[in-house]
């Protein structure tokens, strides 16, 4: 049981996908213009991560070694397509806000990375937990980055404006994403990494 808990919590801080493993940086930078966008992107990735981890751990024994990467990519792409159709149907506003980065979950290195490093050697339940832990770690880092950028850029959190005035627009645009991520990594290195 303790092992299971570790499988889950490892992805939160110790192997945080963004700040420690440096995986999945494109969606991290691009979709965190506001806290809510970052959170949505995190949830979308979590969905694909858990389901593809489970599917891959179930079929891994039957896949020949030579073609395992293409097979994994097709499995992941299938779940991404399911996600695209679901989001188009139920959350069209968020789908268009996140744009091309939803289909790009296919080439997000976190998903393929977990399939390679964990799911193909472990059981279905463990793989689901692992995907869930890493996904939650990803959600945390995206939401934090989104919040910092939203506060600096527009003076609001989750759309609730608490500083009057315009804010520093550059933080919502491209340069702010790189700067904020850089400084957050410094803070992470200083206080959380052992």
């Amino acid at each position: 049981m303790n092992n299971r808990l570790q499988t889950f919590t490892r992805g939160l801080v110790k192997e945080n996908p963004t700040y420690v493993l440096l995986l999945g940086l494109c969606p991290t930078l691009a979709t965190t213009t506001s806290a809510i966008n970052g959170l949505s992107m995190g949830l979308a990735t979590l969905f694909v991560l858990v389901l593809s981890n489970m599917a891959i751990s179930a079929i891994a024994r039957f896949v020949p070694d030579k073609v395992h990467i293409p097979v994994y990519i097709v499995v992941i792409a299938t779940f991404v397509t399911v996600l695209q159709l679901l989001m188009q149907a139920y959350t069209p506003a968020i789908y268009s806000a996140l744009g091309v980065f939803i289909p790009l979950i296919v080439v997000n290195c976190i998903v393929l990375g977990r399939a390679e490093a964990f799911a193909n050697k472990h059981g279905i339940l463990d793989s689901a937990l692992d995907g869930f832990g890493v996904g939650v770690g990803f959600i945390i880092s995206l939401t934090v980055l989104g919040m910092v950028r939203e506060i600096l850029g527009t003076g609001s959190v989750f759309g609730w404006k608490f500083i009057t005035g315009d804010g520093i627009l550059a933080f919502v645009m491209a340069p702010g994403a790189f700067l904020c991520l850089g400084y957050l990594m410094v803070l992470f290195n200083k206080y959380l990494k052992k």
């Binding site: 790189f178 700067l179 290195n189």
Partner: peptide, 9 residues
């Protein structure tokens, strides 16, 4: 990596 990101910024 952190200083790299700040430079890219």
């Amino acid at each position: 990596v952190p200083i790299a990101f700040i430079t890219i910024g």
